[in-house]
Design a protein around this nucleic acid. Structure first.
Lengths: 154, 154
DNA sequence: TATTGTTATACTCTATAACTATA
DNA sequence: TATAGTTATAGAGTATAACAATA
């Protein structure tokens, strides 16, 4: 028996869903970064760009709500994506407060390549599961989030 | 259709396991902290104390490996638990470098209460799943971690 | 040479509070 | 009054690199 198994074997942690969620996410996140490499999109920038592409003209506030983060935190993420010229902030006719986010042609191209890399990364990581199990896992996680109101207070 | 569903509906994110893992974990972690309250154990302190109780005399390095964190990062966690008088650093006969970690009586008591609260918190959060689904989710997450070598490089 | 605990350090992520300009 | 974007700020959490003591 290895040292790790000796330490974890009798622990309550192993049966806690939260603990297992975290350990799993740490592994995925680390490999995600390795996959997109130095200077590549971080998980959160990737997620933001994905939503801007699937919902062009979305505002920063709406994007923050969709991602479950504070709108103050969106600023740095959007700044980063704008500096990389992957998206633009455009004015919204009829509401001078809002910034409509639009992907650039380059943004769409970079995203497409990143998505392909991420798909491979997930195939590799979750290759231990068959297709049915993968679908089941996604379904469970999604149902959980929907039941908990997307983790957003308002 | 709500704003959130409009934004997420056509996104690639929804089918990515990593994204769904993170969103789920954020919800759990937030409720965990709310459950143990101001000044209560953080998820990582709870996890460390749990292992010290199930594996008394474990060293800091072994604990770090079991939790998948750097041993330099363990110092603050163990300092915190020691200041709260939940565990002690004891010498190891035969190895003057190592610190054997031992729970105090108070540590065991506090942990027991925290574990009961955490169990309730998980029951509440994961009440959307039946028992079979809960077991399935834990099983999938654990199998994933085992297949990926516990997320530890060495 | 390798390992244990430790410190110093820095970076990422995220939250809160306050501000401005609009609505 | 409320909302959008922004700034300043601070607090977790975690990683790297180096060091002394010990193996």
């Amino acid at each position: 028996m290895t040292e790790l198994k000796a330490a974890e074997g009798n622990s309550d942690l192993e049966s806690l869903i939260g603990y297992n969620l975290k350990r799993a996410y740490v592994i995925v996140q680390e490999d995600f970064r390795k996959t997109l490499g130095e200077g590549g999109l971080s998980p959160r920038s990737f997620a933001a760009l994905s939503l801007v592409i699937s919902s062009p003209k979305i505002t920063q506030s709406a994007l923050a709500r969709a991602l479950g983060v504070e709108r103050s935190g969106m600023v740095a993420i959007i700044d980063d994506l704008q500096h990389r010229e992957l998206l633009e902030r455009a004015g919204v006719p009829g509401d001078k407060r809002a910034q409509a986010l639009l992907p650039t042609a380059n943004g769409k191209r970079i995203y497409k390549a990143a998505l392909a890399a991420v798909a491979k990364h997930e195939e590799k990581l979750f290759g231990v599961f068959n297709n049915e199990e993968q679908a089941l896992l996604v379904d469970l996680l999604r149902r959980f989030r929907e039941a908990r109101g997307n983790g957003v207070e308002n």
